[in-house]
Amino acid sequence: MATAAQRRIKSVSYAKYGYIFILPFFIVYFIFSLTPLLQTFVLAFQENGARTDLAWVGLDNFKTILAKPAENDFKALGIHESFWQGVINIMIIWFGNFLPQIALSLLLAVWFTDLRVKMPGKGFFKVVMYMPNIITAASVAGLFLSLFGDSSYSVINTLLKPDEPYKIITSVWGSRILVMFIQVWMWFGNTMIMLMSGIQGINESLFEAAEIDGATSTQTFWKITFPLLKTIMVYTLLTSMIGGLQMFDIPYMLHTGNIVNENIKTVAVFVYEMFHGNFAKPSFGYSAAASVILFVITSILGALVFYVQRDKDAIEKKKKQKQAIKEWKRKQKGGGFSI
């Protein structure tokens, strides 16, 4: 027997609320962010060397960046090579930053949320781990330069007193590993907190039940925490992937003098330099084209992440949908609705 309230629920379509709830986001996004964003795509197909009245050049910018240029075409060589150097650098740095960061963050998040690990000062540790993230990148770069700089007066060289000072910043792998380290150092707290919030969103009674049932920490993790954390993990994977591929600050600032270290120069740094390098004759076209390529790479990898995690989610959802349709059909036929 349906009550009045239930009848109301049945007749009301909730779809419009979906639109209402997401409306503010889209209004604001369209006003402030959409045109600048579209401009990136427009600029990618326009000429370089001017700020206004840009002519269309089709795919020329993409060709210059992607295709192997002639031996004596220095311009194309310069742009092509530094873009690909950026791609290689970012791939290397990203792996070295991403994997340790996720592993460390996950481990810490589990420790901190594990009801059985009783330790004084849990709160203190949680606060401390996030600290590196509150300092601006410029200060971080400056600090690490004085710690690990090439100078024979840097901390590492004064402490270890090698015969020849260590040149971490100018060495290819030294600088890359340092960037990886700084990135992990700056961001593991952030990732950890995100994962912690995910774990804490899991119904506590599940953990309690597991404990009473005598499950070990490892069992609890693999049987309860990990599966339920999956959606948040997807988020973490995706955002750190995007953040990693678009890494800019530290690679851009970790050098002395005014020349960016090319062993750690990322695609985003390439984009920035082409965009801002020459005020009177900016290379907007190359810059935007490189951005679009970076966007495509990011999207492909992003889609991959989604595809990999999609399985259960999607299947379950489809099942539900089918059920809903069935139910709806049944209702159409005049079947009763009861809870």
């Binding site: 370089n48 060397g49 004596n72 220095f74 310069g78 390098g277 290379s283």
Partner: peptide
């Protein structure tokens, strides 16, 4: 140097 300088929009390098 030539490759680097050639990236600057507006100049030509041979």
């Amino acid at each position: 140097f030539k490759k680097d300088a050639a990236k600057i929009e507006g100049i030509t390098v041979e």
